[in-house]
Amino acid sequence: MDRARLSHLRELEAESIHIFREVAASFEKPVLLYSIGKDSAVLLQLAMKAFYPAKPPFPLLHVDTTWKFRDMYRFRDEYVAKELGLELLIHINQEGLAAGVNPITHGSRKHTDIMKTQGLRQALDKHGFDAAFGGARRDEEKSRAKERIFSFRDGQHRWDPRNQRPELWNIYNTEIHRAAGINRAAGTRGESIRVFPLSNWTELDVWQYIMLEKIPMVPLYFAAMRPVVYRGGVPIMVDDHRLPLEPGETPQMKMIRFRTLGCYPLSGAIESNATTLPEIIREMLETKLSERQGRVIDHDGAGSMEEKKKEGYF
């Protein structure tokens, strides 16, 4: 191999592996936040590589809003838990569930806040995780462009964009205040760190890596005939009976796929014939829409991602 010309993907891979190992070595209780999507798939592959031949020395956590696509649940349970044999924790915000919080009557903002943001905080507190890996990339959104790889959170999981630690070379400051002894017993929460090993990856890098590494994916990323209704011109998949139909509305079978996966009533599909990875990549490169546009939450107002992050959303 030409020493001066390591391909950018191998360089990114090496950087991510370095980050995984650094966290595993420096924190008491790390966890990998697993969302079943393509970024999580890459994250998981990198974690497998970082500790090979051992398995990753931390569990996976899925914060379940109960509104994911059925294909996602199947993939999670069959591939990740069974085939890879990894420890998978699932957390559902039981209070939210009991209150019947859902994206349809409560709207995307409230649903996401309660089931996802609060659910995540509950799970982190419950297990006492001090470091959580996430699959966020800096190229996703403008406010994420400034996020550090090691993102410091206070005891309330809050992110302060003005109080970030400088991050130099590949030397990461892993020091945090841990609630100890009597304070921990009294329920005082220590600080924690969110870690983003894919920070420097772009959407194209993620897809290309999936292709090169032959990483298994949820089928929803590939085009297929699926039942949809149109909401505001966006195809929404009717994944189960919970999606209320307007009077006279009937689901139509369309050749669709998803660029990003979230809660199904909040995930807009795109009409597509891309059934292979190269076709998906071509479509992605040719499309004029930015990736997160399919997700409804970002349209709540300028800088809404930034507001959510300050509250503890990933």
Binding site: R138, S143, S199, N200, L204, A302, E306
Partner: peptide
Amino acid sequence: LVDGLKSEREQGITIDVAFRYFT
């Protein structure tokens, strides 16, 4: 196209390190 955080946009200044990607 570049200036990210809300407060920066309002002040018209970039206040932190931001990373951009292109090919």
